[in-house]
Simulated assay, not measured.
Amino acid sequence: MRVPFVKMHGLGNDFVVLDARGERLPTMTPSTAAALANRRTGIGCDQVILLEPSEAADFRMRIFNSDGGEVEACGNASRAVALLHGAEALVETAGGTIRVQPANGGARVDMGVPRFGWEDIPLAYAMDTLTMPVGWEALESPSAVNVGNPHVVFFVEDCDALPLEALGPRIERDPLFPERVNVNVATVESRRRIRLRVWERGAGLTRACGTGACATAVAAMRRRLVEREVEVQLPGGVLTIAWGEDGRITMAGPAAEAYRGSFEWDDFA
């Protein structure tokens, strides 16, 4: 079966998007997703995005990391999908229903309400998630937040100086996080600007992470380090994150289509 795809990215965080809203595709497996994502022998991407029909929303978005694991949410992919869809839509994800709207060469996304309970992250045992009494070498006292997927956020003097490629995988798979975790290291540069690097669960170091930007902004707001709307500077570019009085997070930023192609499904099954 020959399957069309669209290669897209949000601030360099790249995706292979498969549209099964009209024509049903074979079952996506972790091994197929990982094979498609492989940058040497596949198409190459950080995440494989599968669009399917939904009874609860306009359509459903499923997200597979480059290791083949399915995850709950992806902010950058949400913007890319909004651009591809071309109109405002409700999108069902495993992390909850979100609203996307194309805007200014990218999209605005209502990412929903963040959760802070230790059992919502989830953590292996109860603790305060605003300032967690844990640490890994130079990274200490993080905040934790679930924005559709789990994040831990460390505020440091210079996020670029830390060996995140070494500490990220250790923290991601620490027994404290039974479903693993995305690791964010952030430097607050002003009341309206944060600099951020992210080790993404199942994908590694990434040029941009939309949910990471949301989680980091909200964690900084909870600690009263920044205003309720901030710019988050990632290696791939800038996202604007606002946390409204209604408790909902809005993310705005660019997305782009790179190219289109097709592949034989059996070659990656």
Rank of each mutant, 00 (worst) to 15 (best):
T27A: 14
G105F: 04
R223D: 06
M28A: 07
S78A: 15
E72F: 01
T240L: 03
R223W: 05
E119K: 14
G44Q: 03
H85A: 14
G106K: 06
P4T: 13
C74D: 05
A219C: 15
E137I: 00
E52R: 12
E231F: 04
P178M: 07
R228T: 14
T216F: 02
V181N: 01
R170C: 04
V198D: 07
A35C: 09
A144K: 09
G247H: 13
R21I: 07
A82F: 11
N149L: 06
T29F: 08
T206F: 05
G168E: 00
L176T: 00
P122F: 00
A20M: 10
T41A: 05
V181Q: 04
E137Y: 07
T131H: 12
V232E: 08
C159D: 10
V188N: 09
P133W: 05
F59K: 05
L123Y: 05
V188A: 11
R99K: 15
R207D: 12
N184W: 04
V145F: 05
T250H: 14
I121N: 03
A217C: 10
R24S: 15
G236T: 05
G68N: 07
A77D: 09
T131M: 05
R2G: 00
L83G: 12
V113I: 15
V100D: 03
E119V: 02
G117N: 14
P175F: 01
R21C: 11
V3Y: 06
E70H: 09
V91K: 10
T93H: 08
R224I: 01
D267C: 09
E137N: 13
A186T: 09
F268Q: 03
R79A: 09
T41G: 00
V134D: 08
G106F: 04
A256D: 13
V91T: 11
Q47R: 06
E257V: 15
Y259V: 08
S54F: 04
I43W: 03
E245M: 14
M111D: 09
A107I: 08
G204Q: 13
E231N: 12
A57W: 02
E231Y: 01
E72H: 08
G253V: 11
V152S: 08
R260G: 11
A77W: 07
E229C: 13
D128I: 03
T29R: 15
V156N: 11
L225N: 06
A57P: 02
R108Y: 00
D128P: 06
D120E: 15
S143R: 08
E229H: 03
R192Q: 14
T250Q: 15
G253T: 13
R173N: 13
G10R: 07
P235Y: 07
A269I: 00
D58E: 03
H151K: 13
P4I: 11
L164D: 07
P26K: 04
G105L: 07
I98A: 04
